[in-house]
Design a protein around this nucleic acid. Sequence first.
DNA 1: TGAACAAGACTGGACGGTCTAGTTTTAATA
DNA 2: TATTAAAACTAGACCGTCCAGTCTTGTTCA
Lengths: 224, 224
Amino acid sequence: MTETVQVRRSETASAKASCMPAEKSRPDKHHAITQAASEMFLAEGFERASLDQIAHRAGVSKQTIYSHFADKEALFKAICVELTEKLTIPLRQPRQKDGADLRNLLIRLGDDALAMMLHPASLDLHRLVLNAAARFPELGRAAYEAGAARMIDDVATLLSQRSQSGEELPRVLGEAEARVMAEQFIGMLRGFHQIRGLLGVDAIPVAERRDYVRSCVELLLRGG
Amino acid sequence: MTETVQVRRSETASAKASCMPAEKSRPDKHHAITQAASEMFLAEGFERASLDQIAHRAGVSKQTIYSHFADKEALFKAICVELTEKLTIPLRQPRQKDGADLRNLLIRLGDDALAMMLHPASLDLHRLVLNAAARFPELGRAAYEAGAARMIDDVATLLSQRSQSGEELPRVLGEAEARVMAEQFIGMLRGFHQIRGLLGVDAIPVAERRDYVRSCVELLLRGG
DNA sequence: TGAACAAGACTGGACGGTCTAGTTTTAATA
DNA sequence: TATTAAAACTAGACCGTCCAGTCTTGTTCA
């Protein structure tokens, strides 16, 4: 009796250590758990989401959760990593640059970036990670790398390249200059739109948002 | 016995309704409570801060807290309002505009605004309100009005005035244009500095930050 | 004297995590 | 294909802890 229990324990521990689907579990259970946990954590936050609720919503017993994850904290971290990865997929896909001039590239990029930042799931994750970062610093850093840092890198690379080869920008940019300008561009793009979403203030209409993006691009191209 | 308790109850309710210092309480108690509650909420968040801890830190009994505030939620909201008010005092003080040109005004304003946004207490409150906004929408809206909206208004007014009367900006700005440009300016000013603070990523050195602010002002003046 | 207070016991309930007992799935073997 | 044993699972009881909010019993102060 107790022996079989001990065996289970050790397997449980190893499965959790890797934070991966347990090797011998029924495959759909893991997904059901992470799905339900995502919904609950996003909607309620870490403290208010209870494992009983998550288990019930996943159609799974609490014990099964504990056979996949060491504890609530491990489940939470796994969810954060998974969601961060999922919601930043657009940032890791190479952008189409075929023949477009810098202005139109920046407009497309700006429209996409802003839409991503204002997506409800993105706002919820933002809230979640911001809150968790105080207690789990590695989550904060990981989210920064996957989100903000990635965007800065991409825009900086684009600006740097385009400034080298011609007349699309007033001057040739060094590495550091390009990064500063990228931060300025994404910063002004974001403006207070994301904050408004997070604070429950009404968003501006989409048409107005498009105008705003274009206005940012013009400001950058004139001022850069 | 029970009667005196009933009397206390009704007084408690009225004192809390106004969210002001109870009329008949010893004056320093209220401040001790809000002080301790501020510290605990900022450090731990709403759920993890317990009333026992707050009472202990305030050197006050739990009952005293409940004679000043209806419940934990009311205490929390009062703290949020009070902190929001306190931390946005700089935004409500008229700025010195004596004889300075727009460039230097914007630099001063930018330095101050960024320093304010990156202040540890400000970051903690930001986290707190962002998290609370999902459950208490009025807190979110109030914070937006006191913070972001206020800054946009101020900068927009400044830009609009200066654009009317001369050559400091390339063109005369309408009301709406000035607001857009103000949002762009503060947005690029903030960049990802605040996010880095919130996520626990190392901040850039102060000297570099000053350069960044100046660079933002130049970009705005050239591009506006 | 009476109102505000301190100290802390107490209640009721939620929750994280464990444990038990019985059921289903899997996969190897006869 | 039928058998079977281990592993994964379910349902829910259970434990210990924590906590919001109440109540009691005194104490302090105006």
